[in-house]
């Protein structure tokens, strides 16, 4: 287990390093001069040069990169041109929206999909299974922004149970904030649940055909323990993979759904920052998004090991 952990940890660090270099160099070669953006089109050549020197833009690529990565590692980070505040604080304040949103969406997705997938697998080709397959097909074909709009129409406009969008902020109104995240989380969760249900079903179907499931039945175990202990533990491994990918993506910001619900999340931040050519913000958020995916996958790898001894004891 320790060896596996260390191996995965080294992979994690190397990956993060490569990602940081890629992100930095892509934005480095991109046209557009940050000094020009800050000072506007009427700035003189001299003031531009001064600002470039101040921002360190006149130095070589590697010096700039090392300076940037040093700032990030030391916890200083860069400074947003547009918001005039540390990018770190900006990300943290937006993560307070996107983080809970992603977790709620995943939770909804899991609660719906795992029991439904198991049910469908156990009733393969019978009416219950067909109904599940029909609705998951529908879920796969539904764009999440459209489902988001439908939910607003129903719960906010017609029934008046929820507000149609916006976010009061955790420090202002905890319950109201939670409520504001519920509809978008549901829209995201239901769509993700469609894939996860189908995956759980097919994985469970494979496992239920395994010899060891027959052995478990031959021992006289209750059907419940056969399915939920002997089969499920084996069936979860592929489900976990997709779950990790989905969570990583959601943490990186659900750009569309945040726009539908006017949520001040990471997705909206990066969307606006690109429009405003706020390079330090874009750079750090892209790095953060990539890091979120990599770190969640690292956690998934650890979860694999806790489920499957063949990985753990390798």
């Amino acid at each position: 287990m320790v060896r596996y952990f260390i191996k995965k940890l080294i992979t994690l660090v190397v990956l993060l390093l490569l990602v940081s270099i890629t992100v930095f160099s892509v934005l480095y070669v991109l046209p557009g001069d940050p000094a020009q953006i800050i000072l506007g089109l009427n700035a003189t050549e001299e003031t531009l040069a001064n600002l470039r020197a101040e921002l360190g833009l006149d130095r070589s690529f590697w010096v700039q990169y090392l300076g940037w990565i040093g700032d990030i590692l030391s916890g200083k980070g860069s400074w947003s041109i547009n918001y005039d505040m540390p990018v770190y604080d900006l990300i943290l304040s937006r993560l307070a929206v996107t983080g809970p949103l992603a977790l709620m969406a995943m939770l909804i997705g899991i609660v719906i999909s795992v029991p439904l997938g198991i049910y469908a697998a156990r009733h393969q080709n019978r009416p219950g299974d067909m109904i599940v397959m029909f609705f998951t097909q529908l879920g796969l074909a539904t764009p999440e922004f459209w489902l988001g709009i439908l939910l607003i129409l129903l719960f906010a406009v017609k029934l008046g149970l929820f507000s149609a969008g916006g976010f009061p902020g955790w420090s202002v109104d905890v319950w109201g904030s939670l409520k504001a995240l519920l509809l978008p989380a549901f829209a995201l969760g239901v769509i993700r649940a469609s894939i996860l249900t189908r995956l759980t079903r097919s994985s469970m179907l494979d496992v239920l055909r395994e010899d060891y499931v027959r052995t478990a039945r031959a021992k006289g175990l209750r059907e419940r323990s056969v399915v939920y202990v002997h089969a499920l533990k084996n069936a979860l491994v592929p489900v976990l993979t997709i779950l990790g990918l989905q969570l990583g993506q959601l943490l990186a910001g659900a750009i569309i759904i945040e726009n539908v619900y006017y949520l001040p999340g990471l997705g909206r931040l990066v969307f606006q920052a690109i429009g405003q050519r706020d390079l330090p913000v874009v750079r750090e958020i892209v790095l953060f998004m990539a890091a979120a995916v990599i770190i969640v996958n690292f956690l998934v790898d650890m979860a694999y090991a806790s489920i499957d001894p063949r990985i753990r004891l390798e």
Partner: peptide
């Protein structure tokens, strides 16, 4: 179910796949 594994037991051909790999 109470007969299975108590009065009548079975062993199978493939000992590789007949045991649960994760327990």
């Amino acid at each position: 179910r109470h007969v299975r594994g108590r009065d009548i037991s079975m062993i199978f051909q493939e000992p590789m796949t007949s045991l649960n790999p994760v327990l």
